[in-house]
């Protein structure tokens, strides 16, 4: 029983990181109607930036974290401006291929700078484990839960209550009508990329603190998993991305522990296929019924 609870907690920890990343996929999809396949690599960029600030420049931890998050945001906005904006009216396939190209570019750039050898990194999160009865919860897990919960509450309120949040929702529904309201669509898309990349940077920092090792392809797998989480929850839906991420983390952890660690990825993808067969729009996806 203790073991099951610990597996569940582990699953929720990984799941909440997936959820943070999935939010970026889902928001960008909702607003720019594109799958940003380079999104996962922002995790890697964030992890390397943190490493550079802390281990090479020897900056204080808090400052390094802030700089990492800000720079990832700016990089996200820059990528959108340079690579995706010129393709605003292009076929979806061209945009998709460009996104894959950007992903390769980021991975190869870090390969060039840092080489393929994994780099060790000592976790910046030094919180003691907590014991409740027989169950022990690692410090990194507690910090992950707190950080992701705060991020999600802030994001949800931002979208629900601020003027920019209103603009984002309007643009995701109807760009033309949003323009008629006086909303600058390009600016809104930039803000969306900034927020998505900011969340990916936080995910990268948490991820690095957990695995304590860096390599250029480290963003690929969590990126794909988070994309699956976004689709599972219903792409375009923000609560869907949160739910999808958590569900994915738990399924993965439970199947690793009780079925087979080799098959866990296969199980995760089977669950996705099953859900999509029953509900093609994902768990919380919209059914796209339009009133005429």
């Amino acid at each position: 029983m203790t073991n099951v609870i610990e597996q569940l907690i582990n699953g929720l920890r990984t799941g909440s990181i997936y959820a943070l990343i999935a939010l970026g996929y889902t928001m960008v999809y909702g607003i720019a109607k594109m799958i940003n396949f380079a999104h996962g690599d922002i995790i890697m960029v964030g992890a390397y930036l943190l490493y550079v600030f802390i281990d090479i420049f020897k900056l204080p931890i808090i400052l390094s974290v802030v700089l990492t998050i800000v720079m990832c945001s700016l990089i996200g906005v820059f990528i959108e401006k340079v690579a995706y904006k010129p393709l605003r009216k292009a076929a979806p396939l061209s945009v998709l291929i460009t996104a894959i190209g950007v992903s390769f570019f980021l991975q190869n750039a870090s390969l060039l700078i840092f080489s393929a050898n994994p780099i060790k990194f000592e976790s910046i999160i030094k919180v003691n484990a907590v014991h409740i009865g027989n169950v022990s919860i690692a410090g990194i897990t507690i910090v992950t839960f707190i950080v992701t919960s705060i991020a999600m509450v802030l994001l949800t309120s931002f979208i629900k209550y601020t003027k920019t949040g209103y603009a984002m929702r309007a643009v995701s529904e109807d760009k033309g009508a949003a323009q008629l309201m006086g909303i600058n669509v390009n600016r809104t898309i930039s803000i969306t990329f900034a927020i998505g990349s900011l969340l990916a940077a936080i995910a990268g920092i948490l991820f690095l603190s957990q695995y304590q090792s860096l390599k250029p392809t480290m963003g690929a797998l969590p990126g794909i998993k988070a994309f699956v989480a976004a689709v599972l929850g219903g792409i375009g839906s923000i609560p869907g991305a949160m739910l999808g991420g958590l569900a994915l983390g738990v399924i993965e952890s439970i199947s690793k522990a009780y079925i087979s660690s080799q098959l866990s990825d296969a199980i995760v993808f089977s669950v996705l296929i099953l859900v999509l067969l029953v509900k093609p729009t994902g768990l919380l996806g919209k059914n796209f019924i339009e009133k005429v």
């Binding site: 003027k163 929702r169 309007a170 529904e173 109807d174 033309g176 009508a177 309201m181 919209k286």
Partner: peptide, 20 residues
């Protein structure tokens, strides 16, 4: 075709009208 923002509430739609 009206093009109201279907998923936003009536109030939110009106607020968007005063966006500027």
């Amino acid at each position: 075709g009206r093009r109201v923002f279907a998923e936003l509430t009536v109030y939110e739609n009106l607020k968007l009208g005063a966006y500027t």
